[in-house]
Design a binder for these strands. Sequence first.
DNA 1: AGCACGCCGACT
DNA 2: GTCGGCGTGCTC
Length: 802
Amino acid sequence: MIAKIIVDVPANQTDRLFDYGVPEKWEDLIEPGMRVVVPFGPRKVQGFVVDLVEETELEKVRNIQDMMDVDPVLTPELIELGFWLTDETLCFAVSAFQAMLPAAMKANYKKKIVVAETFDGKLAEEVSRWFEHRNEIPWEDIKDSQVLPIFKKEIKRGALESQVVVKEKTAPKTQAALILPYPKEELESRMEELNDRAVKQKEVLSLFYEINAPIAIPELIELADTTRGTIKSLVQKGLLKQIEQEIYRDPYKFKSFKPSKPLDLTEEQRKAVEPIMNSLDESYHNTFLLQGVTGSGKTEIYLQTIAHALNQGKEAIVLVPEISLTPQMVSRFKGRFGSDVAVMHSGLSKGEKYDEWRKIHRGEVKVVVGARSAVFAPFKNLGIIIIDEEHESSYKQEETPRYHARDVAIKRAKYHRCPVVLGSATPALESFARAQKQVYTLLQLKERVNKREMPDVEIVDMREELRSGNRSMFSKPLFDKLIDRLEKGEQSVLLLNRRGYSTFLICRDCGYVLDCPHCDISLTYHKINHMMKCHYCGYEQRAPKVCPNCTSEHIRFFGTGTQRVEEELAKILPDARVIRMDVDTTRRKGAHEKLLGQFGDGKADILLGTQMIAKGLDFEKVTLVGVLAADAMLHLPDFRASERTFQLLTQVSGRAGRHELHGEVVIQTYTPEHYSIQYASHHDFDSFYVKEMQARKLHGYPPFYYITLINISHEEITKVLSVTEKITNFLKANLSENSIVLGPVASAIPRIKDRYRYQCMIKYKVEPDLNRLLKEILKRFSKELTKDNLQITIDRNPHMLM
DNA sequence: AGCACGCCGACT
DNA sequence: GTCGGCGTGCTC
């Protein structure tokens, strides 16, 4: 039998199937989707079995050396999906397969040196010393040492040989547990063997009448109120047996979830649920776009449709954006479905993610709630896929494979003939356009549950504030309202969009801005250690006291960071208790959750933060939301800037007045007339959609045109330019005349980590041959890619144009 | 990607 | 004459 295998070598020349023989002893055990260890040239690598056949065209093949799985880790569906991903995103097949599995399962190669079995001579003096107390030497121990040449020589003459061990990154966690090494019926007679004085031992043993499964040692000690000594002697007498039991690292072990029952649906909700239920009952694929204003009860719809799928014996995937995976969302799912739920998000450790994955793999859970990569959950009988906040940019992976979770979800749902529900208050323009064209089915919720009113929104023109002499970052209206909430004991949320607004250093005399020496971007000031830092390459230097250019002392920090807002808040509202949430304060594991918990418990009056506070949170006493600089992201070089601004403002406004108390929103801006800001303040998605569609049509952007972005980078600017030019010319010559090829043009950040970056953008409507052409480009430059350190990245449907 | 093979310059 | 530099090409 021959296995078709994708080897774990992410390179152009190895990105194809290799044939290996299956040893006879494994013929009945091996299945497609398993990981194996195969000899590859002079080394050993991990491989994925993707097919089993009888014949090979090759003269001779080498054999699979080892199996790494007992059960396939990829189902036939996922294998097919992997190849689809490879094709869609132009990545290596291994990269696609690896993206579908938890990082902990990535192979870990350990190289070591041993004395060759066939060798019975004498080792060189310097080398034999290394083998005095052991029979293998880890490669790391000698690879940088002086003796390396001698080792190499010994390998050459056959005295030593190098071996590679392929292991998993993280092994399942085990714990010591106890079982009876004989049938329960023998308990009584066995107990008689014990000395009459061994009262406690008998007592412990008698507990095993009730215990049916292996029990962990600490648990037994607790249960029997005894000590380790008692148990140890029982084990020594052979009356109990100690085994190693696999356990899960459960990140939610110590949390209890309030069980919840299905809520009564409003008329609107019922109308939205019905077609989804139909799709489930009749088992056909359909994509629903569930557009519901903030607070309209989308989550309850998710819960009830999932419950329906579970009743049919099917499984469900729920995707949530990375940052909004608030404890609140997890609680609601765990509360409704209990231990049937696995959770997968970036806050978990590698080991925890691995364990959650194994629960899915073994069929121990029916629902997974997770970020982007949870879309690959190895379920075999999917009933429904839900994508909450479907417009969120975190669903697009920005590294290879550059997939969008929405596309993967739809692909999987077609296979399983099940519905996909895309939920959002502010759908992505592309999604809404598809709903308009009836590609998706539009379901709308226009009212908040219990008919709560949308908050009142006030737009404050910061230019006016400046003219009237207010130079602070808080306008008069916002300041007054903050004081009002403080007096009433209500809470406020302040949003600062830091992107494009970080603190940089500028000289007021000569205008000099301190830039990173390796990237074309200004350095950001970090107050904690008084350092200037580059956010792209990590370069750091001390903040200068005088201008490096003109030695002027009038050098100052410009821009607004959360730290500075916090300082100013402390000045103008000294009594307010503030919680700051940004990358700095939430870096630690669980910090995100903890800070939100504190705010929810009323331990602060104001929550100040970046984008991460904009979504998902739902606190009763929040009645004021302030947006400090609504236009911060409006002028970024990105055709989605208006859309992102509209979405963010709408989302954050939705945080106010979700319960008994009425909410208010203050939006501070320098461009109050901009349609994103105007329509967001009126909660008017439809008008925004019409206006933005006009702009997209005019400029030839999605959803009217598809976009593919090719990024080229190299240390030498001339090289980048010439390669980009060749690529653009090639495309211009081969694409249809309705398509537009833009470039070569320098990227928005023309240099990162001492590499120059150019790009080429393709806009097209129909271009069935594009993938082939792109592959041809990669092939043509493949030599320079490896040899000359040239980089070409291709992003079909990019979300970041930088 | 690794790793071996192979062909040229600077040393004992 | 040999050691080691890295350019070239292959891995079932």
